[in-house]
């Protein structure tokens, strides 16, 4: 009886164990409109979509290799990283950039998972110019 109960518990947990996010909370769906508000109030101190400022320009950042925006002087750590900016890597970066890529210069953290998802959803809309 006990063995059956254990088996049932394992089977019930199996789908979550097999997903790529096993052990982590699933990332919430992002709202690009709210993401733009957050971008303008928090990210735009250092960043613009089309201009390199204190931080690099963000147009086309989604899907780009980290440390590769033209004309921006990155830290050696970011330049040498092999990170490609996806939803997962951007979420880790925004959670704690210096923990994700030690030696990077950005220290700004976005504490809330929903806010991170919204900013990422907004950045996804800022595709590279054709």
């Amino acid at each position: 009886m006990m063995r059956l109960k254990t088996l049932a518990t394992v089977l019930a947990l199996a789908p979550s164990l097999l997903t790529p996010t096993a052990g982590h909370a699933a990332a919430p769906a992002g709202d690009p409109v709210h993401g733009q508000d957050i971008y303008e109030s928090r990210c735009s101190a250092c960043h613009s979509i089309d201009a390199n400022r204190v931080g690099p320009a963000h147009r086309g950042v989604y899907g780009r290799k980290a440390g590769s925006a033209p004309g921006y002087a990155y830290s050696p750590a970011l330049r040498a990283s092999r990170v490609i900016w996806t939803e997962a890597t951007l979420a880790r970066w925004l959670t704690n950039p210096q923990a994700f890529i030690p030696g990077s210069r950005m220290g700004f953290q976005v504490a809330e998972a929903q806010d991170r998802a919204d900013v990422i959803a907004y950045l996804k809309t800022q595709t590279a110019k054709k």
Binding site: E40, S41, R42, C43, S44, A45, C46, N96, P97, Q98, G107, F108, Q109, V110, A111
Partner: peptide, 17 residues
Amino acid sequence: KLERGAANAYIGVIPSF
């Protein structure tokens, strides 16, 4: 706009120090 961005930036880096 720059002042708000700077205030938010200074708040946002506090946990990283």
